[in-house]
Each structure stands twice: as C-alpha cells, then as structure tokens.
C-alpha cells in the first residue's frame, strides 16, 4: 500500500462525510470573500485579548473605586476595619433555624418549638425597634439620608451546635445615595435592654476591600455567608450581626459620607 492508494481511496469516502466538509469549506470561503477573518484562535490574538482584558479590569476597578467616593469624600469616614474577630458558637442540642428580615433598626419575633428543632421568623418593622435599644440611634428625620431605604436580612441555621447562614441588606432603587461597606462584621448580644459586643475567641484579619452598593455599583444587594464557629459558648438569647456601612450622598455639591450600622438579628435557643 502506498500513500497515493490511500489518497485514491479517499475518492470513495461516503458522500455525507464529504458533504459535511464541503459545507464548511463554502462557509469559510464566504467569510473570506467578505473579508471576515476569524482570528480568535491565533496565539498572538489570545495574548492580546488577555492583555486588553487585564487593562480593562484595572481601569474599570479604578473607575469604580473613584466613583464610589473612597478617594474623594469630603468628610472623613473610616474604611471598613481590616482586622477584627471571628466568633464561635456552640450549642449542645437541637437544630435552630432562623429567618430574619428588616431594616437596619428592625424588630424581630421568634418562635420556637420543643422538638429540638427551632425555627425562627423575624418580621420586618421599619423605624425604631428593640434591636436598637441602647445604641446610638440616629433620627432619620435629622439626617440628610433615609435609612428606611435599607432592608437587612439574615437567614441561618443552628444545627449540631453550629450556627451558620448568610446575612446582608438591600438598598432600595429609590435611594438617593449609595453605600460602601467591607467584609467585617461584629456580633452583639441583647443583655436586658442593652446590646453588648460579644468578644471573639479568635482574631481574624479581614480583607481590605471596599464594596460599593447602589448607584454606580451595578448592584443594590449585599450578602455574605457567616458562621459562628469561632465563638466560644454562647448562651441563649437575641443576637445581631452589626455591619458598618458608609452612606455616600452629595450634600451641598460635595460627596459626603456618613457612618451607619445595619443590624441583622439572630435568635439562639438551645
């Protein structure tokens, strides 16, 4: 057998096989006749596209940071803390599940069952609430921004002594400001009528990131997963995740920032 015999044999390939390739050839020839050249597969194009994408990401990131006001705010406002704590919770029995939803000053209601599995539902209440008692509370009317545009939420489970879930907040599209926050959060416990910070058992370094929410950010939603594994033993009661935010609003022609807190409530019951 020689190579020419194989080549000759190709004349007897099944028609459908040749037809398939023929269609591809004609399509390719048509593209070339219209001056359309597919260069995506060429190595230098891949390198070029990758480099261009990197440049765009850098520029885009820079623009996002600039527009978020971090570099240009007039009033001094701290960025989200970069080092804080992460906490742990240990419960001895049962499963607790919770769902909370409300604004930054919302109240909550918690129902339990006796089956070892606890489920909670937190209802939204705009305005003042027990969750904020004892805290520095800013009267919305006195400030140039409306906190009711922010709705917090917290969904969590408590199972095998572990509490985990996600929390966050939504900023209304009607809001006339945008929000910047970071990764850091803290846990507080409601002792009588006073919210007390829960000390962490282990320190944790938080990433130095600023997360814009709302105008210019492309999203009005912030959420993050959490767990309380690193806390010590926690007693039953009402807890809340405290999230620092910075509200940015143009006041008097200046982009001014105001520090605020968003609270996401938890109910732990053994």
């Amino acid at each position: 057998m020689d190579k020419e015999k194989i080549s000759e044999a190709l004349s007897y390939l099944d028609d459908d096989i040749i037809k398939e390739t023929d269609a591809l050839r004609q399509k390719s020839a048509k593209r070339r006749s219209f001056g359309i050249i597919n260069i995506a597969g060429r190595p230098w194009v891949k390198i070029g596209l990758t480099a261009a994408a990197c440049v765009l990401i850098i520029i885009g990131g820079g623009v996002a940071v600039y527009r978020s006001g971090i570099l240009s705010r007039k009033k001094s406002a701290p960025l989200p803390d970069l080092a804080s704590s992460k906490f742990a919770y240990t419960s001895s029995d049962g499963i607790t599940q919770g769902l909370s939803e409300g604004d930054g000053f919302a109240t909550d209601r918690y129902d339990t069952s006796d089956s070892g599995r606890n489920e909670g539902t937190r209802e939204n209440a705009v305005g003042t609430s027990p969750a904020s008692v004892g805290e520095k509370q800013v009267a919305a009317a006195a400030m140039p921004y409306d906190m009711t545009y922010i709705t917090s939420f917290c969904t969590y489970t408590c199972k095998d002594s572990k509490v985990a879930g996600s929390y966050g907040f939504d900023l209304s599209e009607n809001a006339d400001y945008y929000v910047v926050t970071g990764d850091r959060w803290e846990l507080e416990f409601l002792n009588s009528d006073t919210w007390e910070k829960v000390a962490p058992k282990e320190e944790k370094a938080w990433p130095a990131i600023a997360i814009p929410i709302g105008q210019y950010a492309g999203t009005n939603h912030y959420s993050s997963n959490f767990n309380l594994d690193c806390y010590g033993e926690l007693k039953d009661g009402s807890y809340r995740i405290v999230k620092k935010i910075w509200i940015h609003k143009v006041v008097g022609g200046n982009d001014t920032s105001y520090e605020e807190s968003v609270y996401c409530d938890l109910e732990i019951k053994k």
């Binding site: 057998m1 015999k5 194989i6 044999a9 190709l10 004349s11 007897y12 390939l13 099944d14 096989i17």
Partner: peptide
C-alpha cells in the same frame, strides 16, 4: 485491497 473498500474503511 480495493480502493473502494479502503474508502469505506476510512469512512
């Protein structure tokens, strides 16, 4: 081997 047969095999 007939070219035709080979063509079928290659197909």
């Amino acid at each position: 081997l007939e070219a035709k047969r080979l063509g079928e095999v290659i197909s």
